[in-house]
């Protein structure tokens, strides 16, 4: 196949990707809470407005220590071998979930919740 056909093909794929990115932008909403999932199951929802630290045990016996500070969340400590989750650092937006694969942990910040004008309680 001639080179130019390949170029056209890849250009089309690239264009499709750009279109997809424009149509489905990564959620950028600054989060004020985060959902913690383990192997797809929602463990809890953590508000990001209060500094806190807690440990999430993993099914295989390990654990991840999660920290919340200044409206952001991260995995502070993990006993998984690659510690990719720790390396991901802080997250404060919906588009940047933090994942610890070996432990099946996914921290998904949730975009700004509706700012209530009042709360009936």
């Amino acid at each position: 196949m001639k080179t130019k056909y390949w170029v056209m093909l890849f250009a089309a794929v690239a264009a499709a990707c750009v279109t997809a990115i424009v149509l489905f932008p990564l959620p950028q909403g600054v989060a004020n809470s985060a959902e913690l999932y383990q192997n797809g199951v929602l463990l809890c929802t953590v508000p990001l407005d209060e500094d806190t630290r807690f440990t999430v045990p993993a099914p295989d016996g390990g654990s991840n220590t999660v920290a919340v500070s200044g409206g952001r969340i991260r995995v502070e400590q993990a006993d998984c071998p690659d510690k990719l989750c720790v390396k991901q650092g802080w997250s404060r937006t919906e588009g940047y979930p933090i994942v610890c694969l070996p432990h099946g942990l996914v921290i998904q910040p949730k975009g700004r919740q509706v700012d209530f004008d009042a709360a009936a309680h």
Binding site: V114, D115, F116, D117, A118, A119, A120, H121
Partner: peptide
């Protein structure tokens, strides 16, 4: 918008014409 404890009373709309958003606990 008047918040008497958890009793909410609204007058009109927000200045921009949009509805007030009241949360239910």
């Amino acid at each position: 918008i008047l918040r008497l404890g958890g009793n909410i009373q609204t007058v009109g709309t927000k200045p921009d014409g949009s509805d007030w958003v009241v949360g239910i606990q």
